[in-house]
Design a protein around this nucleic acid. Structure first.
Lengths: 231, 231
DNA sequence: ACCAAATAAATTGTCGACATTTTAATTTAT
DNA sequence: ATAAATTAAAATGTCGACAATTTATTTGGT
């Protein structure tokens, strides 16, 4: 799990708490965010709370309507597929740029991460860990390795929490943990080789496979052959 | 130029005004945003102003530091190139999805837009119009045509204003107006044919060419062969 | 009993004032 | 005269209260 800066201001702290609660589903998807209720429960002024809500909106976790208020986004299969459609080219480019710009330290970090993933999955139930945070951590650090601030902003600020939210609350039934870890290894290999084109190709394939796997599962669920935990 | 919803709230109005002023350079890039000064000049409370500033931050036009305040982003060649690196795969995917999902009405609209661009450039100085708003309008409507909400959010909310800002304030010396309009025609053609793969390829090439053109101009400028209007 | 209009309650938007932190100016010491 | 320390000014963060809007309830009519 990625944890960055400490909260310096009240709004910061409230944002981080609410963000975590929404991502993990402790604040239900689709539910209303009541300012009076929350400001009372969290013991902060509505000003600080509204600042935090504004940031939740900025990272696409809530939607706001003027004079009506904020509401946690609702999850849907359609949106999840859309996210993968966006990630495929974006992270593909991230991998390409990482092949050009990544530092040795960042490579070391990624190699260690992959080793850790393999170990976790071999020994006991690493599936949950991997699917909740581990997988995304890999993608996160690849994006960081691109050293492209705009790309980092889009993926790590605007999309990351949303991706996390789906990871926590949506289908946890994927059988792709092992293949995914292998594909990570291939991507990183191309990056280490400095082969941007190959890295982009491999990353796009990796994400496309994840999407198609989900699309297949959705189809199965819709045909009533699996219990529906897709919200 | 794309103009959407009317401002329903004070913060909305202030946001739109500030956004426009920043994009056009009437509020200088890199300058500080003083809450007391602005709230006094615009005759609104700091609460409404701060709400607006928060949204400016969300669309990457200002940066904020806790206890220090907001500052208009500064423009740089590096950032501009970064934006093109992000746009290339993102809008490529947008074109691919548009080929699958665009409606006839949207196609008609785009064809009319291209016709308008060709006319403007033939008759008189359409270059300025095209480079300030026309070109981006085309890209904007292609993205809309993808019917992918996540993609639309990223490109039309998080990146659009930033792109506009560079269009207004950065190099207006491109000689690529005519080629660009032709390339637009090709992209739209592939979309109309429903050839997603081709549309993606053409869009990526179109944006890559723009980036390389800029990179070339930057090199020339750095060699002192052109007057520097690159901030 | 059901629907529309009017009223009441609750929620969001906006404001001015105070608290805390940062920045500028002044003082003091070397 | 310069630099560090102290003090003063200004800016941001936070708060509670009021205004405007939305939502829920009640009233009245058919």
């Amino acid at each position: 799990m990625i944890e960055n800066n400490i909260a310096t201001t009240i709004a910061d702290r409230i944002f981080e708490n609410l963000c975590s609660d929404i991502v993990k589903g402790e604040i239900t998807a689709g539910s209303k965010i009541s300012e009076p209720e929350l400001s009372l429960r969290l013991k902060v002024s509505r000003a600080s709370l509204r600042e935090a809500i504004g940031r939740l909106e900025a990272c696409n976790l809530v939607t706001r309507k003027a004079n009506v208020g904020a509401r946690v986004i609702s999850l849907s299969e359609k949106k999840l597929i859309e996210i993968y459609h966006v990630r495929e080219p974006l992270e593909g480019m991230a991998a390409r740029l990482a092949a050009e710009n990544i530092t040795q330290d960042e490579i070391d970090n990624l190699q260690q991460l992959i080793k850790h993933h393999a170990y976790e999955v071999e020994n006991g139930d690493g599936h949950t860990y991997f699917q909740h945070t581990g997988d995304l951590d890999f993608h996160y650090y690849i994006v960081q390795g691109s050293h492209n601030e705009q790309l980092i902003s889009l993926l790590c600020n605007d999309l990351y929490h949303l991706m996390q939210m789906y990871r926590y609350q949506f289908g946890r039934i994927s059988q792709r943990t092992l293949p995914a870890i292998n594909e990570h290894q291939y991507v990183l290999g191309a990056i280490i080789d400095g082969d941007g084109e190959m890295a982009e190709l491999l990353m796009r394939n990796h994400i496309r496979k994840s999407r198609r796997n989900i699309e297949k599962m959705i189809t199965v669920v819709e045909c009533g052959q699996l219990s529906d935990n897709l919200g």
